[in-house]
């Protein structure tokens, strides 16, 4: 069913940008002229990562079917010198999360991730998928086992299925960060740290100490690393100074 709107969209110039800020918490790049492109793009992974199931409207979500073509566009645009992924997520769909992580990992455009606030559960593979990962001092990452949700009947196979899903996540994190597999497993099943659950909460520097994240820092650090990575690629590029 195709219907052609008879009037032009966007009645005023400022309105769409304002709506985007309101709806998505994102904004364009103030101060840039039309047609002028910023060297680095920014992808925010916020709230729940929405996958196969449309989550109720009370959830703030990152829609993976929208994020993935954006990554494709960024990868194909030679004017975009790097991508900053800002994470403040509570987790979400495993397959959608791993899909975003795999896309980030295999991009030739330099990618730096910045964990602000929280990078919990499936946020961890996304954070480590970047070429360089930065965590702010107060940000936390929760490492915990995958639990059952959805319509899975309680038979021994259920456990094996969950175990397989968990292995995917563990393997990805171990392959793309400095964290050792036994350390990650130990953190995942540690007791006494989470109130009703097993797992570990890593705050800022702790995530760096265990080898999950590369560096403690903020926006300046992340952009500096990104410009360093970009300088080595695509004919060289210089933008940001040492923070």
């Amino acid at each position: 069913m195709f219907q052609q709107p008879q009037e032009e969209r966007a009645p005023t110039r400022g309105a769409p940008a304002l709506q985007t800020i309101k709806e998505l918490g994102q904004m364009g790049t103030p101060g840039t002229q039309p047609g002028e492109e910023m060297p680095f793009h920014c992808l925010t992974i916020i709230g729940q990562i929405e996958g196969h199931l449309v989550l109720p409207p009370r959830n703030k979500t990152t829609k993976y079917e929208h994020a993935i073509p954006q990554l494709v566009a960024i990868e194909q645009n030679p004017k975009i010198k790097g991508l900053l992924v800002v994470l403040n997520t509570v987790g979400g769909d495993i397959e959608a999360g791993l899909a975003i992580a795999e896309m980030l990992k295999t991009m030739t455009t330099p990618v730096v991730s910045l964990v602000l606030g929280g990078g919990h559960s499936i946020g961890a593979p996304i954070a480590v998928a970047a070429d360089h990962s930065v965590i702010s001092e107060t940000a936390t990452m929760t490492i915990h086992p995958i639990r059952l949700s959805g319509l899975v009947i309680g038979v021994p196979q259920t456990y094996e299925y969950l175990d397989k899903m968990q292995e995917r996540v563990i393997r990805f994190i171990v392959q793309h960060s400095r964290v050792a597999e036994p350390v990650l497993r130990e953190m995942m099943f540690r007791t006494g740290e989470l109130v009703r659950d097993v797992g570990t909460v890593l705050v800022g520097a702790e995530a760096v100490r265990v080898g999950l994240i590369d560096e403690v820092g903020g926006l300046g650090t992340a952009l500096y690393r990104l410009s360093q990575l970009a300088a080595g690629q695509r004919g060289g590029f210089q933008c940001c100074s040492t923070p």
């Binding site: 709107p5 008879q6 969209r9 769409p16 709806e23 073509p69 954006q70």
Partner: peptide, 27 residues
Amino acid sequence: VRVLSTDPRHFLEPSVQPGAIIHGRFF
């Protein structure tokens, strides 16, 4: 709600990001 396109540039277009309002007579 979502963009239906195979051109990845369309997904970077601010005026059609999910949540954006489109004005027009649709029927």
